[in-house]
């Protein structure tokens, strides 16, 4: 980063100390809820009632992890305040990774292609198509959810290509692409208005002169796209990939209706299912829930740990654009 505006510009040392204190409090607040989930996941359900304000695990135990990750006998699970209906967090995490990775690859690539067309090619109605694409930003997802759902269900039947027959995938015995990974990815795989808008803005900023040489060499658009534009746009592509990955990981509404089968159920849906397990009971299985919550957060926290700098840069970068 270039030298920031005004760094080191604060007057008094007291002022700086107060400012740092404020910053520390903000940081603490950012972490505290996650820490609290960790603490609760290591406690027992009766323990958290007895000592609700104890910052350390109460009656410390790993049993919550055992029952959320493994498959201990049902009696022990029930004694710990759970039901027989715990889900496999690992499976859900795997599903989320598959879905988020798939969406990220497809969306970044296809939107880069579209953005190239909007930024570099001249064709009739270009602005109109672009505006139309952008207008999709205001379409509430709940609005298109059911028609999309119906379409996904009919996909296999109406298109009838053997190549689109996904019956070999888990859970796809009858309902088209519903409860399949492609079905979960499809609505985000080919385009989102934000991705195209974001990349177009970046491509517009790339100097034309770089391309001129290639044009003189007689390079076609495909070559210019792959050999010049894409390599020059890596920061933007990485930024978009990170944002897309996080958004896909966090998506709830679509997988909630289109991916309920356990074999493809992603973490957000699995967590929500976990919330209200027993009928008529209003007592949540807090320790089980917080364990599942924490386990579900671990992969994305790890990713964040590994790519921390990149993610932070990416967000700032998306802001400037």
């Amino acid at each position: 980063m270039s030298t920031a505006a005004g760094v080191g510009n604060v007057g008094s040392a007291t002022g700086r100390r107060i400012a740092w204190a404020v910053l520390a409090v903000v940081m603490l607040f950012s972490i505290l809820p996650v820490f609290w989930a960790l603490r609760t996941s290591l406690s027992t359900n009766s323990g958290i009632i007895l000592e609700p304000s104890n910052p350390l695990p109460v009656e410390a135990t790993f049993f919550n992890y055992e029952r959320v990750l493994g498959d201990p006998p049902i009696e022990e699970v029930q004694a710990a305040g759970g039901t027989g209906g715990e889900f496999s967090v690992l499976l859900a995490v795997r599903n989320s990774m598959i879905v988020a990775t798939g969406i990220t690859i497809g969306q970044v690539f296809f939107c880069a292609m579209a953005a190239y067309a909007f930024a570099r090619l001249r064709f009739k109605g270009r602005e109109l198509v672009f505006t139309l694409f952008l207008s999709a930003l205001v379409v509430p997802p709940i609005f298109t959810m059911i028609p999309n759902f119906l379409f996904m269900r009919d996909l296999q039947l109406s298109l009838g290509f053997t190549s689109l027959d996904l019956s070999w995938l888990p859970g796809s015995d009858k309902a088209g692409w519903i409860n399949t990974f492609p079905g979960l990815m499809a609505p985000f795989f080919l385009m989102t208005p934000f991705a195209i808008f974001f990349l177009r803005q970046f491509f517009l900023g790339i100097s034309r002169e770089v391309e001129e040489a290639a044009i003189i060499d007689g390079a076609g658009h495909m070559r210019r796209f792959f050999r010049i534009i894409l390599p020059m746009s890596v920061p933007a592509l990485v930024t978009l990939a990170i944002i897309t990955y996080v958004n896909s990981w966090n998506e709830f509404l679509w997988p909630f209706v289109a991916g309920r089968d356990e074999s493809v159920r992603v973490v957000t849906v699995a967590l929500n299912d976990f919330k209200a397990q027993t009928p008529g009971t209003t007592r949540p299985d807090w320790t089980g829930l917080m364990t599942a919550t924490f386990v579900a957060a671990v992969p994305i926290l790890l990713l964040f740990g590994v790519l921390g700098r990149r993610v932070v840069d990416a967000i700032q970068f998306s802001g400037i654009k």
Partner: peptide
């Protein structure tokens, strides 16, 4: 500092809600 304050953003809404 920047990574810490960004942490809540990467957590899914559902997870944040339950938390």
């Amino acid at each position: 500092v920047r990574a810490t304050i960004l942490l809540p953003w990467i957590l899914p809404n559902i997870l944040v809600g339950l938390l």
